[in-house]
Design a protein around this nucleic acid. Structure first.
Lengths: 248, 248
DNA sequence: AAGGGTTTTTAACAAATGATAAGTTTGACC
DNA sequence: GGTCAAACTTATCATTTGTTAAAAACCCTT
C-alpha cells in the first residue's frame, strides 16, 4: 500500500517506538483518512488561541512551538522533528496555548480529532502511546526548565545540541553525531533565553573549543563526550521511550 | 462513608475538576485501597532514579519536584499543591526522572500502579482525567520555560506568585489573593534560576512597590492587577481545566 | 530566657549577559 | 554577475545577576 509508505507509515513507526502495536491497531492506523499538508518556512501551522479540529504529525521538516510573551516578543518552548505530534494536547484542551510554526518546508499528516478519539476508544494501546507522547514532551520541557534555570550560556547551548542530536538519532536523522538542524541564531536565542549576540559568542566558544561545527544548519558534535560534559547532558529524560529503544 | 471524606475524597474532587465522572467511576475510585502516608518537611517522597509501584496524590501540604544538576546542585522544576498527582508519569515511565520532596508536613494518598491501571482499563473517562492531569503539568512546565527564558527576576517572581495564587484558588486554598506558600527564599531561587541573594533583592522590590506582602510563608497579592502586569501573567495556560472551571 | 542553627538582609565587588551600532558574509532573485 | 535582504560577526559599553562575607532576625529546643 502506498498509503502506508507515504502516509501513515511514519506515524505508525513513531507509535511503534512508544508501544507495541498489534495488527488490528496497525490496520486501524493505516486506514486513517490521509490528509497531508505542506507548510513553507516561517508559516504558522497552528496559532496560539486556535481551536483546531485536528492534530499534526510531522512527517518531514522542523517545527518550533512558541508562546507569545509581553509586548511583541515570543519564546520558543520546544523544537519538533519528524515523528513528533507537537499539538496532541489539543485533543484535550480546546484552545491552543502555543503556536506551532514551520522552521523549514514541512510536510505534516493531519489527524482529525474525531479520528484520533475513535482510535483511542478502540485501542487502549494507542491511547497509551498518545499519552506517552505527551509525557515525552513534558519530560523535555522539564529538562528545558533546568537548562534555562541552572546552566550558563555555554552549557545551555551544548545541552540543546546534545538533546537535538540524540532525538534525531532515534528517528534516523542523525549519524555519527551529525545532523541537519536548520535554525537561525536568532531562533536559538529565542529558545535559550539569550540574545542573538550572545548566542553568537557562545557558538564561537563551542567552535573554538573544538566541540562542534555548525554551518548553514549542519551541526556536528566533534567530541561527543566532551560536549555532553559541557552541557551536563544525561539522556535519561529521553528514555520515556520504552526499554527496547537504546539511547547513548 | 468516612473513607470518602477522609480518603479518596480529595482525589475524586480533583478528578471532577478535570472531567465529569459517573456513579460507577466515583464508586470505583471510592473503593481504591486507601494507603495514606505522611512526610515531614524536607523528606523525599520519591527519588530520582526510583522505580515506584505507586503514584502519589497530595492531600495536604506542599511539595516540590526537582532534578539533580551538575555537581551537587538541584533545580526545582515545579511546586505541587493539594489535589495534584505529581508523579503520574510513573505509570508510563519506569524510572523517575525527578525527585518529589515534601516542603511542609505532607499527607499523600498512595495509588498502586496496578490499581490505577485497572481504573484506566475500566473507565475511559478516568484515563482521560489522568492524561489531562499530566497535560496540565506539561502546560505549566512550558510556561516556566517562558518565565525562565524571557523574563527578568522581578517579572519572574511576580509570575510565579500569580500562578501559585491562581492554582491555590482553584482548590480553595487561597482567598482574596492571599495564601500560604511556605517556601524559603533559597527554594524560590532554585525554582527561578536566581541566587538566594537576588531573590531577596527582588522580593524587596516587589514589596516596596506595594505589590505583595510575604512573611513567614504567608503570601498576599496586594494589587493583583498590577502584579499580573509586572509578571506578564495570563492564566490561560492553566485553563486546561474544563470549561466549567473559571479562572480569573 | 539563652543558645544555636536556619533564614533573611545588607554591602561591595565580580562576572555574565544584554544593547547598540556597524561591518561582513551569505544566499535568493533578477 | 549584480543587488538586496537576511544572517552572521565584531566591538564597545551598560545592565543584570552572581559571589563573597558578614550581620541581623527568626525559630526551635532546652
Amino acid at each position: 500500500m502506498t498509503s502506508l509508505a507515504h502516509g501513515a507509515g511514519p506515524l505508525i513507526r513513531k507509535l511503534e517506538r512508544l508501544i507495541r502495536l498489534n495488527d488490528d491497531e496497525r490496520q486501524a492506523l493505516d486506514q486513517l483518512p490521509l490528509r497531508i499538508a505542506t507548510f513553507e518556512p516561517g508559516h504558522e501551522i497552528t496559532r496560539q488561541g486556535d481551536r483546531p479540529q485536528h492534530c499534526v504529525a510531522v512527517l518531514e521538516g522542523f517545527c518550533s512551538v512558541s508562546k507569545i510573551v509581553g509586548e511583541g516578543g515570543r519564546s520558543i518552548v520546544s523544537f519538533h522533528i519528524p515523528g513528533d505530534i507537537p499539538d496532541l494536547q489539543s485533543l484535550h484542551v480546546a484552545e491552543m496555548d502555543v503556536s506551532l510554526t514551520a522552521l523549514t518546508k514541512t510536510r505534516v499528516l493531519l489527524i482529525q480529532h474525531e479520528d484520533a478519539r475513535r482510535l483511542c476508544a478502540q485501542s487502549a494501546a494507542i491511547t497509551h502511546a498518545f499519552w506517552r507522547e505527551t509525557l515525552i514532551a513534558g519530560a523535555i520541557a522539564k529538562e528545558w526548565v533546568v537548562n534555562l534555570g541552572q546552566r550558563d550560556a555555554l552549557a545551555r547551548v551544548a545541552h540543546l545540541f546534545c538533546e537535538t542530536i540524540a532525538r534525531l538519532e532515534v528517528v534516523g536523522l542523525a549519524d555519527d553525531r551529525r545532523c541537519h538542524f536548520p535554525v537561525t541564531q536568532e531562533q536559538l536565542g529565542e529558545a535559550m533565553g539569550l540574545s542573538t549576540i550572545h548566542i553568537n559568542r557562545t557558538l564561537q566558544e563551542l567552535r573554538s573549543r573544538g566541540l562542534i561545527s555548525w554551518e548553514r544548519g549542519d551541526l556536528e558534535a566533534l567530541r561527543w563526550e566532551d560536549l555532553k560534559a559541557v552541557g551536563d547532558f544525561d539522556p535519561g529524560y529521553l528514555s520515556l521511550a520504552p526499554d527496547w529503544v537504546v539511547l547513548r
